[in-house]
Amino acid sequence: MLFVLKRIGVSVLLVWVVATIVFLAIRMVPGDPAAILLSQGGVAPDPAAVAALRVQLGLNQPLGLQYVEDMRRLLVGNLGQSLQDQTPVAGEILRRLPRTLELIGAAAVLAVLVGLPAGLVAAMRRGGTFDRIASWLAAAALAVPVFVVGTLMVAIFAQGLHWAPAGGYVSFARHPLRHLVLLAMPAATIAVGLAAILFRMTRAAVLDVSMRDYIRTARAKGVAPRRILARHVLRNALMPIVTVLALNLGSLLGGTVLVEYVFNWPGLSGLLVDAVNARDYPEVQGVVLVISVLFVALNLVVDLLYALLDPRVRHG
């Protein structure tokens, strides 16, 4: 119980630190939300109009006051309103977040399905043909930026074969099948890079574990190779793999921008980038805050997984 309380305390502290840093940092970066909103398309707004908008948005108040107000608002769970069109930030994030989570989740499943077995096989047949080909492919997958993979997919499947729409989003409730079709390409695009990373990590971890003494012991017992792999190698190799997977999933929370752009998938990362570009302070803060809360939650899950995977952590 104490452990859980401590954990929650640390998490709240973490979120507060993040909120404060974001508050200061985004205002430290040059760019005036009012000026940007009114000078879209390279036109010249009237400076007085910009000044008037700044007053309307409360940007003319002293920084300290804005900070206190922000924190007070956050304490009651209010993320504020967008500076651009006064939409409540929380509602917008709630709309966007599930889409990004879905995208990341689907990509993670695909990547695990491909990367893990491939890494395993490559490690078992180290130096063999499969290992070599898979290593090449993984290197290529890491070297090719996601927007290239995405653009190629669109060019082939949408523009060339006309099998799927080039991009976009339809909610599952409205059109389940089309929703999944639209999800497939961006998820696969993200999965390419993720699978390559997982492949590398799995291969390394399995190689590492299979050199351990206890694997030799298992062989000395006459245990069948398949069982050695399942019970001894994989189980022990999972810890570093889980670490890396979690780390990458965490960074995807705000990092799927390019894929969202290429496939016109209206997710959270796109919202963040648009918000940063527009210097929409409440929106930036809201998104980063939500990401950090999610990240903290993800951490908790990983810690629990560790305990599940490794009794030494459980007892230590």
């Binding site: 669109v154 949408a158 976009g168 752009y261």
Partner: peptide, 9 residues
């Protein structure tokens, strides 16, 4: 590019 792709597809 997504815009053009949408038109072409």
């Amino acid at each position: 590019n997504a815009r053009v792709a949408a038109l072409q597809s």
